[in-house]
């Protein structure tokens, strides 16, 4: 994959707003954002309600994913372009999720909703009426998803990249600072993990840095590109952003997102944690 295959800019999106085979999808944690306004013809996927099982902590089933995309009017041969708030964290998570269920023709809009708003581009309240489809997903491909046992076995072996902020990594904060800090899990990071915050991969307007800048960043931080890599954060959305850099922009094969992330790892009994405070 080249950068142009996986990432489109706002101008490209504006030029394709009326293309029926390109489906623009806003993915947010804040459900009020889409209700207020969104890019014209964009449909909505709610990160929590649509992509998380309501009872156990996991994805929705393949059948539910099929029902979701069918209901949103997305066909197997449509090009899906994802964007969202929080610097595309949740859109990146959805990108990774679409790949797991086998929708290969998916792209991210660089900079997400923030870049679009900072550019003062058009936003509308009208919800598009897309006819329902019969979407067929593939069985989940877990080659790009890490689970806790693999993470524990990877300590000191693979690149473990903690993409949270320095204060979360060191244990001074338990959650990103837009959220209250009272959390049940322990503070700190997975033993042997390096801290390369997701924000270093992005410009202030939310767009990804250039390939050359990104390569230089991770090289300077000591990442060995010859090793397998697992990225994690608190719930797996910021690390999906870094997974996108490694797996999609760098085109590296053995890169996984650990979506259990710190909320799971920091609650496990007996696993190695390092903490700086």
């Amino acid at each position: 994959m080249a950068r142009n295959d996986v990432l489109v800019d706002a101008d490209w999106v504006e030029a394709h707003l009326d293309d029926p085979k390109i489906v623009l999808v806003e993915v947010d944690e804040d459900t009020a954002a889409y209700d207020k306004n969104h890019i014209r013809n964009a449909v909505r996927i709610d990160w929590k309600r649509d992509l998380q099982d309501p009872v156990i902590r996991d994805f929705v089933s393949k059948e539910k994913f099929e029902a979701l995309l069918s209901e949103r009017g997305i066909s197997n041969d449509d090009t899906v372009v994802l964007y969202g708030g929080n610097n595309n964290w949740f859109a990146s998570y959805a990108y990774w999720y679409f790949k797991i269920y086998g929708h290969d023709n998916v792209k991210l809009m660089d900079g997400g909703r923030k870049k679009w708003e900072l550019d003062s581009r058009e936003l509308v309240a009208d919800v598009p009426d897309r006819p329902k489809t019969t979407y067929k997903a593939k069985d989940a491909n877990n080659d790009i998803r890490a689970f806790r046992d693999e993470v524990v076995a990877s300590i000191g072996v693979k690149n473990l990249i903690d993409v949270r902020s320095p204060d979360e990594f060191s244990g001074k904060l338990l959650a990103p600072a837009h959220l209250p800090q009272e959390q049940s899990q322990r503070a700190g990071h997975v033993a042997s993990a390096v801290n390369i915050p997701w924000s270093k991969a992005a410009n202030e307007d939310g767009t990804f840095r250039s390939d050359d800048e990104l390569k230089a960043l991770y090289t300077e931080e000591g990442v060995d590109f010859g090793k397998d890599t697992i990225a994690y954060c608190r719930i797996g959305e910021r690390s999906a952003h870094t997974w996108f850099v490694f797996h999609e922009l760098f085109d590296l094969a053995n890169v996984k997102n650990y979506d259990g992330s710190w909320t799971e790892y920091g609650s496990l009994v007996g696993v190695p944690i390092e903490k700086d405070v």
């Binding site: 320095p166 959650a175 990103p176 600072a177 837009h178 959220l179 915050p197």
Partner: peptide, 18 residues
């Protein structure tokens, strides 16, 4: 270093838990 980002409310307010 970046720690968090929020969008201001209708009244221009923002809040961080630091």
């Amino acid at each position: 270093e970046f720690t968090a980002e929020v969008v201001t409310s209708a009244t221009g307010q923002f809040r961080f838990f630091a």
